[in-house]
Design a protein around this nucleic acid. Structure first.
Lengths: 220, 220
DNA sequence: ATAGAAATATTGTTGAACAATATTGACATT
DNA sequence: AATGTCAATATTGTTCAACAATATTTCTAT
């Protein structure tokens, strides 16, 4: 299952490895990523590593300061607001024009089921990734390769923000039922209502994130 | 005016220069970009050039084939359909939630005026760039840095498609009046109608592009 | 304790090197 | 003439070592 990208250019494989470190929280926001240390750690040349850094910088996961190096991006209120603006645009837009028979709807339903099961088991990380799958499926409704790719980037950036949070239960758990409702609305061919529901979902999630960020920055 | 990106990393400046070549049509779709030739041409090392190539590949302007090199992306029907799907989502979405007093509306109006003037002078290239400015202003309505950046990427990809066309007058000129109408609708606080109008605009433009592509590929 | 200067480390960029892969061209076979 | 094979050549993939330019740290004098 762990596709390590056999055959892909080294820089891409590297970027992927570092990305997983970033979204799994093993690298903290603001932390500096020394070229020497990382090229050593991954056993690649500095040049290859720099290519990977550039890719990740373009994805918004790293920040580059001239002559000072690259740093893990630090989520701010502004970035969270922006990210949720994007999500409202893409996810609500996808839902609004969704076709009742689209295969992605089954993926949405499956994600809801999975979230339910995980929640029942108290597996909050599992609930989180099922939730993730749900929203990816929503974007799939748009049938656009470019939108999918863009959403993936936004999604990774958001996961970086999750790293700041310590309370995954409170963050994802309440949303499972809303996902269910949204799925049902699409299944019964009421895309407008589904989009409206998604909008309230996202506004709520946004406020939750902002609140959490506020709490986190008070501590620091 | 020509911001050559003083202080930015070399790879970024390079990418920008090559991007200009691409969207101005000086490099043709499908053409191979030899590392040796280009690092020589721009007087930079192969390593730096490769970083730039990676950036542009991520933007969808270049295509990378393992051990074979990078090529200018060749627009296909699929890519045009996808691009217009994205444009409908972003531009209609921006309009739908537009606030009557948003400063970007003045930019839209200004772009319409400029397009009018250029058209009167028969300056079709000028009409094209004014049209471009109009749509960028529409995205500005969303107040999202990430959406703006994404749209810029999509926009560059579309300009690559324009390169296939030989008839800028027929391509842009008929749309000036629609832009005017859309702007008026937003100015008079009728965002829903503006979005609907934009949707017909984009469907029309999409069909025009597809038709042109078809003609172009018949010749080849 | 602080300002400034010297010493050190890091990034930015280059050029050369070499292995791995792709393309070309010569040659033989049908 | 068309096709297949194999060596010769060119290109990409990646590394390494070097050095200039810029930051950071350490040291010193006040």
């Amino acid at each position: 299952m762990t596709d390590d990208g056999e055959g892909l250019p080294l820089a891409d494989r590297l970027a992927r490895r570092i990305r997983t470190l970033l979204i799994s929280g093993e690298l903290s926001p603001g932390q500096r990523l020394s070229e020497a240390a990382f090229s050593d750690r991954f056993d690649v040349s500095r040049n290859s590593l720099r290519e990977a850094f550039r890719l990740l910088t373009k994805d918004g996961l790293l920040r580059h300061e001239a002559n000072r190096g690259v740093f893990v991006a630090v989520p701010s209120m502004a970035s969270i607001i922006d990210i949720y603006r994007v999500r409202r645009m893409l996810e609500c837009g996808s839902l609004r024009q969704a076709w009742q028979q689209h295969p992605a709807i089954r993926a949405m339903r499956a994600a809801v089921e999975m979230a339910r099961e995980r929640r029942a088991e108290g597996d909050w990380i599992g609930v989180g990734s099922a939730n993730m799958m749900f929203h990816t499926a929503v974007i799939d409704l748009s049938d656009s390769a470019r939108l999918n790719e863009f959403y993936e980037r936004i999604s990774a950036e958001l996961r970086l923000c999750f790293g700041l949070l310590n309370d995954p239960e409170h963050l994802h758990s309440p949303f499972v039922d809303m996902n269910d409702a949204i799925t049902t609305l699409v299944e019964t061919n009421r895309p407008q209502e589904a989009a409206a529901q998604m909008e309230t979902y996202l506004n709520l999630a946004e406020r939750t994130m902002l609140k959490a960020l506020e709490r986190a920055s008070e501590l620091a």
